[in-house]
Amino acid sequence: MNTLRRMLSFVIFTLTEYARSGRILIELLASVVFFYLFLWRWTAQPDYFFSTVGLFALGLTFSTISAMQSLGDRPLGYLILVRRIGRGMYLLGLYLAALLIVLALYLLISLGTVLLHRITDLDARTWLLGTIPLLLNVALLGALLTLLAPMVLVAGWRLAILALVAIAFSGNLLGGLVMQRLGPLATALEVLRTIFSTPLLPAFTGFALSVSQDYSGIGFAIPLAQLSLTLSLLALAVYAFTRRELIFSGS
């Protein structure tokens, strides 16, 4: 209980710092511009809403998590970490603070859309079914970025993970002609791609689920897979952060 209370205090502390830094205005402005460009000027179907807002939310997550991590990765953090909060709660506090900002902006965009009737057939049920996988994808990306933060993993490990992600995505980068030239290597690459892209399946299918809101068949398993992957990445990040030597940037 005390652990959660400490983390909650740290989340409020971080959000206050973030708001007072003025950085929140950038996110707010970006959301307004996005809303004007993609949702204000015409009416559309829910699938359009979830695909555009889903992509925007991922971009927002990338930006906010990065900013939040740079707030945490300063020598000021030593004064917090000598206290009972502990490294794990410190990292999770930064993560949760970023997620809360993205969640708040997503709710604002949704509210604006509903009030202006820009999306037809967007009832509460549809919104909820599309929102769950969308926000889980936000949490998943946030967890991956947390794991890849410089204060969490050393450069070697970060590069290794990024290489695996690159291999997983290589299907979109390497065309048929290049693959033909690779000869036997192409088969090996295909195998590696299949192996390494499997953990990313929840993210891809989660995005599709958010757009279609089709939970039939194994659809119900997708949010669970997203949640499992998110928790695994977070556990890995906390493990790495608590084990490594702590040398904040600029110290």
Binding site: R5, R6, E17, R74, L76, Y78, L79, R83
Partner: peptide, 25 residues
């Protein structure tokens, strides 16, 4: 007490100490 004067400057002295106290239960 760290060597360099690195503190969260966007808080008042009282606010800052109160937060640090809360992190220690």
């Amino acid at each position: 007490l760290p060597e360099r004067l690195r503190y969260h400057l966007r808080y008042t002295g009282r606010e800052y100490l109160r937060y640090l106290g809360r992190f220690n239960d």
